[in-house]
Design a protein around this nucleic acid. Structure first.
Lengths: 348, 348
DNA sequence: CCCGACGGTGAGAGCGCTCCCAGTACCGCG
DNA sequence: CGCGGTACTGGGAGCGCTCTCACCGTCGGG
């Protein structure tokens, strides 16, 4: 807790370098159109004084903040169990850093926080927002778009009634449905016939899409082979038990994510069933710490989470740049669906 | 990506309410010393116009930002495997929200980023900083303290030579050493005699402190019973293998954290050893998703991670408040060591 | 030889807000 | 009735920066 010293201003640098404020400003912002000898002199003055621009003053006139908000709306404890957000954040952070922007993190739980987030975003503190983890009937996306902040969503947002915004929605997602299809087809190719699906939390589009992918392949599937769950290991355990009770002849499981698969495999082991001999298991996400640690290692659908984060940031920043050059070349950025890959390990 | 509308200014609100800018400002900042009827009128004008103060303009004059930086310096991928940071962040976020402050997240990897972080903090963008995950010989803490930003560290920082700052250092940590002692004593109480320790990454004080705690109890321990590791599940596996090779008679393991314990238990199971009958295992952290999912459920030393985060934020904010009231009552806040609790589950 | 063009440079006007200080109205009291 | 307070309220300066625009010198072309 040291005392902060008063910081030198542009004026001070100008005085020391024997030039005007305007010239120093030009140098600090790139130095275009300033004689080389002067640039040098100003640079030196900046160094000597340890000058750092005052961001508040700068924002006041430029109306830019070089900061974007990351909103994670996760009322549950899933955030902890799941390295998902950490990886996305890492990707976002990298991209923003490269663009000299800051990351303002807004964690919310419960609706009460929504108003606060809406107010903050509307307050023009940031240039844009990256929004995650939306659930059905969540008023947040509507709130945010109404706040007029450029936004990119992580995962296809689902709109609750009437909150649907007018403008185009930009989001980044992976090909949940296609990935699921590939996983299930792999199980079919293995000769499995009683293939089950443990779903994710169905108030999220990712879970719904994966279920749809499962259904695409297993058209007339026995209803009891689809068990609703919630993306957690505990949920996976419960679902697997229910599955074994109802369909003891199940010979393959496609779980909505790796954590769920982990829970399911735990139950299978407890029940003395071998993976993959008796029951083949496939997960989703390829969360390394989980997928590689299971016994046997988990076959799973890989999505590049960090890349998704990076892409979201890039899309947002590109949109901001474009806007600032008065809608230059090309239209607004549009959504991106990243491909998935099936990673073959031992569990299927 | 909607277009942002021009936002109303104080002036506009003043005009609408038929008062002066100063009065509106007073109302917006609490409304003390303004006639009730006027307050009402101004409030209404604010609502009608949807006025939100311009933070940049405000910061420019007040020199406060209502934002604090959270610096996570984690070059490795540990961040992903470990819900640790997510939980701390949650705690910090809660506390900051309650104080109307924003959280600026600075993720760094590698020394190159350090300069950037130093520059950012020195740039006076935030009122203070919360810094995590320091390793030995890390120049970051020195850099930060020299930047003159009020800082609270997460975990006892270790200073590399010569970077030690002059002022007092404030940090929040749990009682790593005491917790370790309690765990090991518990194993002793169970009648175990060949008690091993798998350490964490010894370039972090938490790992060193836990090792010290182990040594406090196991004074003349067989050197081979201490195996250096790195806080990861994979590291735990390797360490456990080494342990079994060198000391097949080991009958208890105190692992530096739950993840390591998990890896160790995996190897024990593979080797056909029963937990806790043949080898008792204790972890550290009580990371719920891990500790409750192991087989058998893990006995571990619990630290309240979210509370640590919250406390760090509270300490920092308190320091800032105090400073602003010109060093009012009491001195600067000092470090806090939180107690740990041994959670008895089935593994020991 | 004059004029316009052109690369540099500096003066000055704000950006939207807070805060100091001067001003106004109204009260009670001598 | 006037005076000193008390309780508000408004005017204005100025936070540190960017950006427009006027200005200066230099150069080339007519």
């Amino acid at each position: 807790m040291t005392e902060t010293a008063p910081r030198p201003t542009l004026e001070a640098v100008a005085a020391r370098a024997g030039v005007s404020r305007a010239t120093v400003s030009r140098v600090v912002n790139g130095g275009d159109g300033v004689r080389e000898s002067l640039v040098e002199r100003v640079r030196q003055a900046v160094d000597e004084l340890g000058y750092v621009p005052n961001q508040a003053a700068r924002s006041l006139v430029t109306r830019r903040h070089d900061a974007i908000a990351v909103v994670i709306a996760e009322p549950e404890t899933r955030v902890f169990a799941d390295p998902f957000f950490a990886m996305q954040l890492r990707g976002i952070s990298k991209e923003l850093t490269a663009h000299d922007s800051q990351l303002v993190l807004l964690l919310t739980e419960g609706r009460a926080d929504h108003a606060r987030v809406g107010r903050y975003l509307a307050g023009g503190h940031v240039d844009g927002a990256l929004v995650f983890s939306l659930h059905l009937d969540d008023p947040l996306p509507g709130l945010i778009q109404r706040a007029g902040v450029p936004t990119v969503f992580g995962g296809r947002p689902c709109w609750s009634e009437g909150t649907r915004a007018s403008g185009p929605t930009v989001y980044v997602d992976c090909d949940n449905r296609g990935g699921a299809r590939e996983a299930v087809r792999h199980l079919v190719g293995l000769g499995r016939t009683r293939i089950a699906h443990i779903t994710g939390a169905l108030d999220q589009t990712s879970a719904v899409d994966r279920l749809d992918g499962f259904r695409d392949v297993m058209v007339d599937v026995d209803r009891r082979l689809i068990v609703e769950s919630d993306f957690t290991p505990g949920g996976g355990e419960r679902a697997m038990r229910e599955l074994l009770d109802n369909c003891p002849d199940v010979d393959a499981v496609f779980a909505a994510n790796d954590l769920t698969a982990y829970g399911a495999m735990k139950v299978l082991r407890e029940e003395g069933l071998r993976v993959p001999e008796d029951v083949a298991v496939i997960g989703f996400d390829d969360m390394l710490p989980v997928a590689e640690q299971t016994e046997p290692p988990l076959t799973t659908v890989r999505q590049d989470i960090e890349e998704m984060g990076r892409l979201m940031a890039r899309l947002l920043l590109r949109g901001l740049d474009r806007r600032s050059v008065r809608d230059g070349i090309g239209g607004a950025p549009s959504s991106v669906i990243l491909p998935t890959t099936l990673i073959h390990r031992a569990s299927a």
